[in-house]
Computed example of a mutant assay.
Amino acid sequence: MFSKACEYAVRAVMYIAIKSAKGLKPGFKEIAREIDAPDPFVGKILQQLVREGIISSNKGPNGGFYLHPEGKPVPLMDIVRVIDGKEVFSLCVLGLKDCSDKFPCPIHHDVKAFRDKLKESMQNQHVQDLVKKIEQGKVFLKNHSINS
């Protein structure tokens, strides 16, 4: 449902949040390596997230990407909105232009309930909450924990 860019963006922001909590500011190459994504692609995604105020960055030898420790929690929906747009939750999964409740595609009603629940989850879930689960070892961003 989400683009590869959006998947990478969510994983990158979670990685940045973990490192920020430890007072660290990872660079884009480290982030790309740790989330298993191509460097140039991650660089562009991170620039977009900085422009939209989701994450912050510093240049120079002590530079990198970070979240403010005292900052507001970041809803996953903010990341989705910046990368894929909110319309991702209303697009037809079969790609039909005019799919709607009034003129549904063959699977519209089945998918609508799932899509609505996912949208609600993205609005209510915050990066910081998910990071806590990662740090507790309850969930993972890749085959092994990135807590180190």
Rank of each mutant, 00 (worst) to 15 (best):
F2K: 10
S3M: 12
K4W: 09
K4A: 11
K4Y: 11
A5L: 14
Y8K: 05
M14H: 11
Y15L: 15
I16G: 07
A17D: 08
I18D: 13
I18W: 14
I18V: 15
K19E: 08
K19G: 11
K19Y: 00
K22Y: 03
G27D: 06
F28E: 02
E30S: 11
A32K: 04
R33L: 01
R33V: 10
R33M: 10
R33K: 14
I35M: 11
I35E: 04
I35S: 07
D36S: 12
D36P: 00
P38L: 13
P38G: 15
P38F: 01
D39L: 08
P40E: 07
P40A: 13
P40L: 15
I45F: 08
L49Y: 02
V50S: 04
E52N: 05
G53S: 14
I54K: 00
I55D: 00
S57P: 00
S57R: 03
S57Q: 04
N58K: 02
N58R: 13
G60Q: 05
P61A: 10
G63F: 06
G63E: 11
G64I: 00
F65A: 03
L67C: 01
H68Y: 12
P69D: 03
G71L: 05
G71T: 13
K72L: 10
P75L: 04
P75V: 02
P75S: 08
L76R: 02
L76I: 10
M77N: 01
M77K: 14
D78E: 07
I79K: 04
I79T: 09
V80P: 03
R81W: 11
R81S: 10
V82L: 03
V82P: 04
V82K: 04
D84F: 11
G85E: 08
K86M: 10
E87G: 06
E87T: 14
V88A: 05
V88Q: 01
F89A: 07
F89H: 07
S90D: 05
S90P: 08
S90I: 15
L94M: 14
K97P: 01
K97A: 12
D98Q: 04
C99A: 06
S100M: 07
D101T: 01
F103G: 00
F103T: 03
C105A: 11
I107H: 06
I107C: 09
H108T: 08
H109N: 04
D110C: 09
K112N: 03
K112A: 02
A113R: 10
F114R: 05
R115W: 00
D116K: 06
K119W: 00
E120P: 00
Q123G: 00
N124V: 01
Q125T: 13
V127E: 07
Q128L: 04
D129A: 14
L130G: 04
V131K: 14
V131L: 14
K132S: 12
K132A: 09
K132G: 09
I134C: 12
I134K: 14
E135V: 10
E135F: 10
Q136E: 12
G137P: 05
G137K: 04
K138T: 03
K138Q: 10
K138S: 14
L141D: 09
N143E: 06
N143D: 07
N147Q: 09
N147F: 09
S148Q: 11
